[in-house]
Simulated assay, not measured.
Amino acid sequence: ALAGVRDGDTLTAVAGEPVASWPQARWQLIEPLSLGGDVPLTLASAGGDVRTGTLRLTPQTVMPDGPDPLLVAGLALRAPFPVVGELVPGGAAEQAGLRTGDRILKVGDLDQPAVEAFVQTVQAHAGQTLPLIVLRQGDRISLAVMPRPEAGEDGRPVGRIGALIRAERPEALVRLGPLDSLWQGVRRTADTSLFTLRMMGRMLVGEVSWKNVTGPVTIAEYAGRTARIGLESYLGFLALISISIGVLNLLPIPMLDGGHLLFYLIEALRGGRPLSERARDLGQRLGLGLVLSLMVLALLNDFSRLFS
């Protein structure tokens, strides 16, 4: 609200980067939401007016099961709008002239109702005439429906119109050509890697909870969740895990590939003279201790989440 965002605005750009979908907006905002800072926003009102605002964010405490950072900042997708689905033959909705695909624009005195608000309004007006305005193939149509009283769970009468109400929201299909897709993949991989390193740094200084370190149990849980959502989400999760493992493996810790690169760098700086066997052995032991400690922490966090 302080940035000038209003209900019904369309977010068209974040920090000068055009966004065409909610996932793109989330990606552009995820780092400033966790690290804090000022983020320029470009907004389009329902009437088509374009304006800019500055979203001032303070660093948020990131927790695996914490609230959505976007919701904490006050940004959320507009609630889905109600659309008439399957009609019960002879029901109040059919008799009122409603058709499958009608979008509810107004019910009673309620403009642009969300699905839940529409259902509650219908249930609260059993046996009473409700004026409706629906959008049908681009035309606004005025109707009137009388919800039929039926016994609710508590025995009290509630209104029913005999129609399945679907929840729908606008969707954007983002298409990229092969070269643009490749470039976006490179950018996303680099941004994810840098963001992972920054989060690790914030863990070391205590700005981010160590509970964010998770292991195989949590990975398996979220793999199952994303697989149920769909192939696209599942492949995205696998890509995220691959990048995280790659970043971890390149850290300058002996026992990891990054540790070997560190030894090679030290050898180059020493004019081609390798470290002594004792120094390499000590480094390997230290690296093994760090890796094992990280594994234990991840498993403890996994089981803590599992049984909490």
Rank of each mutant, 00 (worst) to 15 (best):
G66F: 09
D9M: 06
L164S: 14
E232W: 03
A15V: 11
F81L: 10
D302P: 02
I161Y: 06
L250M: 15
S34N: 07
L197H: 05
G246L: 05
L182A: 15
T189S: 14
A1P: 03
Y222A: 04
P147W: 01
P67A: 14
E277D: 12
P40G: 10
R228N: 11
T226M: 14
R188Y: 07
D302H: 09
R270L: 07
R270A: 11
P178N: 11
E221C: 00
S308G: 12
R305C: 00
I241G: 04
Q60F: 04
P131A: 07
Q123P: 00
Y264P: 00
R175G: 01
R198E: 10
P69F: 07
G53I: 07
A223R: 05
I165G: 01
L275C: 05
D139H: 12
M199C: 08
P82C: 04
A227L: 14
Q123A: 13
V107N: 01
P216V: 15
T52C: 09
R166C: 00
G138W: 05
A268S: 13
L71P: 00
G177T: 12
G85H: 03
D9C: 05
A220C: 01
R225C: 00
M255L: 12
Q24R: 04
A73I: 03
A268W: 09
G74R: 03
V296M: 09
L2M: 13
T192N: 08
V291Q: 07
Y234A: 15
L57Y: 02
A73E: 04
G91H: 02
V115R: 05
A3G: 09
L251W: 08
V39Y: 06
V5W: 06
D154N: 12
S193K: 01
